[in-house]
Computed example of a mutant assay.
Amino acid sequence: MIKLGVLDQVYVNEGQTATEALQHSTRLAVATEELGYNRFWVSEHHSMPALAFSSPEVLVAHLAAATNRIRVGSGGIMLPHYSAYKVAENFRLLEALHPGRIDLGLGRAPGGMPLATRALQQDKYVDVNKYPQQVLDIIGYLNNSMPAGHPFEKLLAAPSISSAPEIWLLGSSGESARIAASLGTSYAFAEFFGTPGGEMATQHYNEHFESNHVLEDHPRSMIATLAICAETEEEADQLAKSNDLLFLGIRTGLEIPYLPSVETANNYPYTDADLLHIQQIRQRRVIGTPAQVKKQLLQMSKDFNVSEILLNSPIHDEKARIHSYELIASEFGMN
C-alpha cells in the first residue's frame, strides 16, 4: 500500500488572517499525525498575500514542536537564493531538536515574482547552474563527508550530531529529475502544479539513478498532488471550487489575495474562457468520494511508479479540510 503525506501551503482563507491560517496549519499537522499520515511538508513562496508564510525552516520548527511522530519538512527550500552552509546549519539544528523527523526538500525555482527574487539576491551573484554543486555541498555538510580538497572541507555545520535530515530534490520538470538521479538523492515531482510530463520525469529518475555512497543506495521518488474528498461527489465538487478560482487567477494573472470561499467562487462572473481553463485544471485533480479518491491515487502511484504521495488539499472550510484527510485515511485503512 502507498504511503500518504501532506503538503500544506498555508493559504489565508477569505475572511481569515495570516495568524489564523498558521494556527489552522498547526491543527492540521496535529490531526494528520493522529490519522497516520507519514509526512507534513510546507513550501516556500515570497510576496504572495494568499500565503501566510515565506520561511519554511521557521514553520518546520514550529510544526515539529507541536507534533510527536510525523516527519516534518520543507517542500522546499529554494536553494539558489541561499548559502548551502546556512541551509545545512538550519536543518542540522532542526534534526538535533527532532531526531529522525526532519526532511530537507530542495528546489531551484525562484518561489516568487522577479521583484522578490531581486530582493532575496540583493548584492549577490547567483548562478542557478551551480545548484547541483550546492546540493552536493549540503550533503557533505549534513553527513560530515566533504570531499578532500574542498575549500570548506574542515568546516562544521553546527551542531555536530550523528543523524541527518532526509534530502529530497523537488521539481516540476524533467531537469530536476535528471539532477536528482545523477546526485543520488530522493526525488519529488510537483504534480499538483498541473505540469505534464511527470510520469516521464519519475521514470527517468528511477531508470538513471546513480547511487550516492553517503545517501540511500536505491531510488526513492514520490509525487505531490491536489486531492479533495467528501462523502458525495457533489460536495467534493463544491469544495474544489475555491481552488478552481484561485488557480484561475494564477493562470490569467488576476492575483487573488486569499483562498476564496465556495460562495465567492460560485458567484464569480466566469467567462467561457475561464470555464475552459477550469476544465483543464480539473483534469489533473483528485476530487470525489473516498472510494473515487483512493482509486485515482492508486492509479497515479502506478502511472508515476511511486510508493508515496503527498496530498495538497486547499479547502476553505477548516472542518471540511480536516474531514477530507480523515475520509482518505479511513479509506486507506490508516486509522
Rank of each mutant, 00 (worst) to 15 (best):
M1D: 01
Y11N: 10
L28S: 02
S47I: 12
A61G: 14
H62V: 09
A66I: 09
N68S: 05
V87M: 00
E95H: 00
G105M: 05
G107A: 13
R108K: 15
T117L: 03
T117W: 09
L120R: 02
D123A: 09
D123V: 03
D127F: 15
V128F: 01
V128T: 15
N129W: 04
L136S: 09
Y141M: 06
S145P: 00
P147F: 09
A157L: 11
A157E: 00
A158N: 11
W168T: 04
G171K: 08
E175H: 14
R178D: 08
G184K: 06
G184M: 07
G184F: 06
G184N: 15
E199Q: 09
H204N: 06
H204E: 03
N212D: 05
E216W: 04
M222E: 05
A224S: 13
L226D: 03
A227N: 06
E234D: 13
E235W: 00
Q238T: 08
A240I: 08
N243L: 05
D244W: 11
P257S: 12
A265S: 15
A265Q: 11
D272T: 09
L275E: 15
Q279M: 02
R284M: 10
V286E: 00
I287F: 14
Q292V: 01
V293W: 13
Q296R: 13
M300P: 01
M300A: 12
K302A: 08
E308F: 10
E308C: 02
L310N: 14
E318G: 04
I328M: 01
E331Q: 15
G333A: 11
